[in-house]
Computed example of a mutant assay.
Amino acid sequence: MLNIADMLYRWCREARPFALATVVRVGGSAPLPPGTALAVGTDGEVVGSVSGGCVEGAVYDLCRRVLESGEPPVRTRFGYSDDDAFAVGLTCGGELEVLVQRIDPADRPHLTTALEDVLAGRPVAVAQVVDGPRHLLGRTLSVLGGGSAYDGTLGGQPVDRAVTDQVRGLLRAGRTARVEVGGDDDTCPDKLTLLVHTHAAPPRMLIFGAVDFAAALSQAGRFLGYRVTVCDARPVFATPARFPHAHEVVVDWPHRYLEHTEVDARTALCVLTHDAKFDIPLLRLALGLPVGYLGAMGSRRTHEHRLERLRETGVPEEHLARLHSPIGLDLGARTPEETAISITAEIIAHINNGTGLPLSRVPGSIHGSVPAPRIPSSAALLSA
């Protein structure tokens, strides 16, 4: 639901009921991931998508019915129609389950607060019951303050606390995922399946080297939802005017800046300096940090010399294996803009465990069942 936070927040502020259709499970080549949502207002206005177009009409009609009748939440499944590819089904061959429910903002003030936090760029998560007893289906609980507090209820303090404990980890990782709680006397006798919608702080992209390639990469990184920093020790090159798409431009020695800045498992670190006096101390430090992606620009010859120098400084082989160098995928890129696409394509493939091969050469589902990405793109884009 956080993919349409702006409109939902407006409706909540206006105390306008709406119907919310949430993708709660996908299979095969379903085009959109769990957590994606479509909503319909009382005037028939629609926002969002659950399938990229395949079943929107049927979902819209169901939303109108639930909204007008006030009936309990409804789960429905859509799949491919063998008899008629244009029937109400996914022509891509995938399957998805959708939960449709009426939301009355007056009954869920915590949801308004959570949506406001999303739009303000603050970390927040909303846990939604997608399977369990009928009277609990569709209930929501918001985890606020980066996990320090919760609001709303799923049926009592024990289950609320158990959910909050699980949500904190997902919120730190920026992952939207299903979790199960209950089924015991300590929390809740009924087993509940929840879909946890997360909005974490935007992941960082650190670009070292104030070169033309960095200008194009900072634009591409910001488009993908990263908070972009460009760092270079040369003040004549490291200026905001040269990098208008970066969130910040820092004049400092790269390794010194990296020593004192915050990184995590979602951080993408791109070294574009290809100058040993900058590269070696920077990479020696970076290779020991828990960043999500680390790449360095340079020719294959530069790469080999760089590895030799790093080995001489005592960097172990298992750390060197983390380095993507020469940086980027083989797209035949020549211009800074093409190179930026090459680099960001490699980052996307790495964080989603993709092959980097043309889809025409990869068997199976094009949206295959892969581990949850380490970067929650839809949530990050809301803060771009």
Rank of each mutant, 00 (worst) to 15 (best):
P376H: 13
L258H: 04
R161C: 06
P203V: 01
G35K: 12
Y226R: 07
S29D: 14
S69A: 10
A149V: 07
L323C: 02
L170I: 00
I280V: 14
D117M: 03
F243D: 02
T339C: 11
V370Y: 15
A19K: 09
D275I: 08
R65N: 04
G314P: 10
G79W: 14
T355K: 15
A149L: 03
G364R: 10
A200V: 05
A214V: 06
R175E: 07
R322K: 13
G147V: 08
R311C: 08
L111M: 08
A286E: 03
G152A: 09
V143L: 13
L8K: 05
P336M: 05
G132H: 07
D160M: 10
E262I: 06
Y80M: 13
V271R: 13
R65W: 00
L329D: 05
H274F: 14
I103N: 08
G138C: 02
A380E: 09
L171V: 00
G332F: 12
D184V: 02
Y60P: 07
D107I: 02
P376K: 01
V196Y: 06
V26P: 08
G52W: 03
R168N: 08
A85G: 05
A321N: 00
Q166F: 14
R75I: 10
G52K: 04
P326C: 13
L294N: 11
A39I: 02
I366E: 04
P105K: 01
E312P: 03
